[in-house]
Design a protein around this nucleic acid. Structure first.
Length: 345
DNA sequence: TATTCGTGGCA
DNA sequence: TTGCCAAGAAT
């Protein structure tokens, strides 16, 4: 692996002036003074940021760190508390793996995160990108971070016309050539900031980019066409039903299976639109109160919402008193269904 | 290698 | 309204 000292120097000089302020980040000036971020906070932020915007993450990061200031405290949390706090952020496997990882750090590593990319890679929910990001940002290991931003920057810098995801290995190698051995933590954040604020998917600001003079796509006028991507299959439409049973100030909800869609989350019992089986959770005079539309990563959903008073025994689900029930603990599609159903109670 | 897995903002 | 997009990992 060889580095281009001019390009890395120019990028870091730009970052020194334009680094974005984030709750989990240590500024380049503070880094230069020897400060390093808390690995727990770096890890938490990086997991939250997987396929998720900075704006969406901020409030969640504040709530998590206020409630669980250390990995040891998070490891001791109830599963339902963590899943509830994650509700609305999406990709709920991340929350399940977050807990597994925290408990592994406590049980197997004395409550301290491994300080190498290789060590981090052994933990649940930490893949190639996140391991590199934590190693670089928290421990200043010269690991190459390749997220969607870096893929875009490299495909333009080197005019890579191979579509993603096939182009990924080549882009990783190219990114490695532009990784700073001197300030790995700042470099990792700098190249991602560059992609997020300058080398954007649409209308990149090439005129103020510190790498514009070296960018092959810019020279060819092709920056707006890169990176190429293999087209995605269009989303099918699925239909289904959910039931909200109620009686005397309690509602009938269901903890979903660990695996699969919305795994581990609280929800209204459903009828199989998500691949699970299921009839109505109890006998009742069910009344349809409307329908909810929602779009997941790979399908559209139209959900009919039914409400009924349950007098007999429930066949599935758990009764939760309205006082104990926090709608904010529901994933978004279920919160939509709840918002519709509550008017019918 | 291809699929599964959320959500909200934006043009 | 629709499709695209965001600091990906697990299987």
């Amino acid at each position: 692996m060889q580095t281009d000292p001019d390009l890395t120097t120019q990028l870091l000089a730009w970052y020194d002036r334009h680094a974005r302020v984030m709750p989990w980040r240590v500024s380049p000036a503070d880094r230069a003074a020897g400060l390093r971020p808390d690995p727990y906070r770096v890890w938490l932020s990086e997991v939250m940021l997987q396929q998720t915007t900075v704006a969406a993450v901020k409030d969640y990061f504040h709530r998590f760190t206020a409630r669980w200031p250390t990995v040891t405290e998070l490891a001791a949390a109830e599963d339902a508390a963590v899943m509830g706090e994650w509700a609305g952020l999406g990709y709920y496997a991340r929350a399940r793996n977050l807990l597994k990882c925290a408990r592994a750090v406590v049980a197997d590593h004395g409550g301290l995160f491994p300080d190498s990319r290789a060590g981090l890679l052994t933990l649940p929910g930490i893949g190639p990108y996140t391991a590199s990001a934590i190693a670089a940002i928290a421990f200043d290991e010269a690991a190459t971070v390749v997220d969607g931003n870096v893929e875009r920057v490299m495909s333009r810098m080197f005019l890579v016309e191979t579509p993603l995801p096939a182009a990924k290995p080549g882009l990783v190698a190219l990114a490695g050539r532009l990784t700073s051995l001197d300030r790995p933590g700042d470099h990792a954040q700098a190249v991602m900031d560059l992609g997020a604020t300058i080398c954007t998917p649409r209308n990149p600001a090439c005129g103020i980019c510190p790498w514009t003079h070296a960018c092959a796509a810019r020279a060819a006028g092709m920056q707006a066409e890169l990176p190429r991507k293999t087209p995605k299959a269009d989303k099918p439409l699925r239909r289904g039903r959910v039931w909200l049973g109620h009686r005397d100030g309690a509602v009938l909800l269901e903890r979903r299976a660990e695996r699969g869609l919305l795994g581990g989350m609280l929800g209204l019992p459903g009828d199989g639109w998500d691949g699970s089986g299921g009839e109505a959770p109890a006998a009742a005079d069910w009344q349809e109160v409307g329908e909810v539309r929602h779009t997941f990563t790979h399908f559209h959903l139209i959900l009919r919402v039914l409400v009924g008073r349950v007098d007999g025994a429930a066949q599935r689900g758990d009764w939760i008193s309205r006082a104990d029930f926090r709608p904010a603990d529901l994933p978004t599609v279920m919160r939509k269904a709840w918002d519709l159903a509550r008017s019918g109670i």
